[in-house]
């Protein structure tokens, strides 16, 4: 088991390194740079700017410098916020993004799972139809539509919620709904279908035939297996939600890091691109790892030794 964790840890580091390397070279291969302007900077001034930020060094030197920074957790200065380091940008934005993301994950778990299970247990009854109707809507309506409608109607027309920002607890409602809408619906559907499948299994019939209480059949036997696909899906989703969404953060004017994933690319803000990419990669790898650990807890058939042996 220990062996397995160590191995996974090394793989994870290697994955992050690969992602960082590929991103670094891809980023430098696209046209434009951090000082590309509508009104282009004259060549002489461009030279001074490039020299100042070491963009005139050979790419391989920049790469080595970058890796040095990465191991010391120094992501360098941001190009789109002069005088601010990427570390500062992440430090300022990540807690906010993570807070909204966490609430979204919470909503998905405490609402999506039970609703999916209830729907499965009441298959083809009104409650099931209602849940599936809502879930289909949730999967098909994009988050920007949810967000825009929310602001227009609940903030603008009714005035129940602030139109932007997180200054009050009420401000979290819109972003959390818009952010979790898709995953919430997806998890509900996934839980339902996976639960339905498990309920048809022989061992459930056996458990029932043996006279086990329904609660025990469902809670102890059915749930565990039904949750496996859900956990598989939730891991990466948590990584994605906790690092934010460009659309939701932009529309609700949340000063998080979600926007940097898109903005840093259009600005060719090299250091910020690398910073947020590596952060997301690390988070993702961590979640995938945690999912594997959870498998073992939920499903005793999955053994670490088998994989590592």
């Amino acid at each position: 088991m220990k062996n397995y964790f160590l191995r996974r840890f090394i793989y994870s580091l290697f994955t992050i390194f690969l992602i960082a390397t590929v991103t670094f070279f891809m980023m430098h291969s696209i046209p434009g740079g951090p000082f590309t302007r509508e009104k282009p900077v004259p060549p002489e001034i461009m030279r001074a700017l490039n020299a100042k930020y070491h963009l005139d060094d050979p790419l391989i030197v920049q790469y080595v410098d970058y890796l040095k920074g990465l191991v010391t957790f120094d992501m360098g200065p941001s190009f789109s916020k002069t005088g601010t380091s990427v570390n500062d940008l992440i430090k300022a934005g990540f807690p906010i993004t993570a807070r909204v993301g966490f609430l979204a994950v919470l909503l998905i778990t405490v609402l999506g799972l039970p609703v999916g299970i209830i729907s499965a247990l009441r298959q083809n009854r009104p409650i099931d139809y209602f849940v599936m109707f809502m879930a289909t809507l949730g999967v098909t309506i994009p988050s920007f539509v949810l967000a825009t409608v929310f602001i227009y109607f609940f903030a603008g027309k009714l005035g129940w919620f602030p139109p932007f920002g997180l200054a009050t607890p009420l401000g979290y409602v819109g972003p959390v709904i818009a952010l979790s809408g898709y995953s919430l619906s997806f998890v509900a559907r996934l839980t339902r279908s996976s639960m339905l499948e498990v309920l048809r299994q022989d061992y459930i019939r056996t458990a029932r035939a043996n006279g086990l209480k329904e609660l025990s059949v469902l809670g102890k036997h059915a749930m565990k297996n039904a949750l496996i696909p859900v956990v598989t899906y939730l891991g990466p989703t948590i990584a994605a939600l906790m690092t934010g969404s460009f659309v939701v953060e932009r529309i609700f004017a949340i000063p998080g890091i979600g926007r940097y994933f898109v903005e840093s690319v259009s600005n060719r803000d090299y250091t910020t691109i690398m910073g947020v990419t590596v952060l997301y990669a690390a988070f993702y790898v961590l979640m995938v790892f945690l999912v594997d650990v959870l498998y073992a807890i939920i499903d005793p058939r999955i053994k670490f030794e088998k994989e590592s042996g």
Partner: peptide, 18 residues
Amino acid sequence: VKFIDDQSTAYTAYKAGE
């Protein structure tokens, strides 16, 4: 001063008197 770049959000807030 706020830095809201989504024009629709800012406009809704303007209409709400913010």
